[in-house]
Amino acid sequence: MIEDSYGTQTRSRFGNGLLSRLRIPRNAFPWLVLTPVLTYYFVFLIYPILYAIWVSLHLWIIEDPSASQFVLFRNYRDLLLPTSRFLDAFRNTLVYVIVRTVALVPLGLLTALLLYQFRRTQRFYLFCVFAPIVCPSAAIAVLWKWLYHPRFGPINAQFAELGVPRQGFITVADQALYSVVAVDIWQHIGFGAVIFLAGLMSIPEQLLEAARIDGANRWQLFWRITLPLLSHTTLFVTVITLIGSFQVFDLILVMTSGGPGYATYVLSYLIYNEGILRTDMGAASAISLVMFVIIMIFTVIQFRLLRPRWEY
């Protein structure tokens, strides 16, 4: 035990456990932490990206990478050939992203406006609306696959009772993509809703009160005050939803595996399909990098919007 000039026992104040015995010079501490972290980053993130770029420039031979032939942009050019599924997947992804975003943003806002009206029971409603988000997509996919079942599914049973013809949903090409995106929308309504709800709650009540005293009706209140004040939130939700929509994989994998035919091939599924099932790593890498660039554009926008506003 060391006693300083005041007679206090300096060491013992911090105990003699591992934390105190581990004396790290202050200047060295950041490097001691960051060196392993940055090394880790290099190995598990930067290296894979560089690897993907490198592979995308080759006719890659998985069994013997050293025999791969450098072809510059041929993999990218070949994506546009009629034999490639890239354009199908690209179009499907675009439809998926647009439908999902266009539906989720207003639905989230409406749900938030509704939730906002309830105080004591809000927790219960919040629970119901948010429940699908916390569940594994695999389980959600399995559940809906069954709800959609053309012969035995409850939805078609309801349809039959109402006199609506039975639908094929995910089993027919012209409905499959929309059926999957519908599930995705159903699952994620609560996400936008809680962000909008937080936005709504941050609007000062005095502001609305003042407008009300000035004779504004509900409609005007919403369009002139609430919505403009939520514009930042709306933009944020839109971009987050866009980025999320591009990355859909689990639902497609479990519900349709890209089928029927190629009707629900999206970019992420195509990457898996080309890379693992068809072992065409060059094409798969090229597709993944195209996807990277698209998502990067939106992420840059998101970063501009993501002026930190964390509340606790």
């Binding site: 950041p30 960051l34 972290v37 940055l38 980053y41 190995v43 598990f44 993130l45 290296y47 894979p48 990206i49 690897y51 993907a52 592979v55 591009f246 990355q247 994989f249 970019l267 992420s268 990457i271 898996y272 890379g275 693992i276 790593m281 798969a284 890498s285 993944s288 990098l289 996807m291 990277f292 998502i295 990067m296 992420t299 840059v300 970063f303």
Partner: peptide, 27 residues
């Protein structure tokens, strides 16, 4: 180089999993 390191780490947020999944698999 504090901010440089920070930006390096943060910028990885924009990398979709689909881009790294195959290289990661082989790694």
């Amino acid at each position: 180089y504090k901010e440089m390191f920070f930006m390096t780490i943060i910028s990885s947020m924009m990398v979709p999993f689909a881009v790294v999944v195959l290289p990661l698999y082989f790694l």
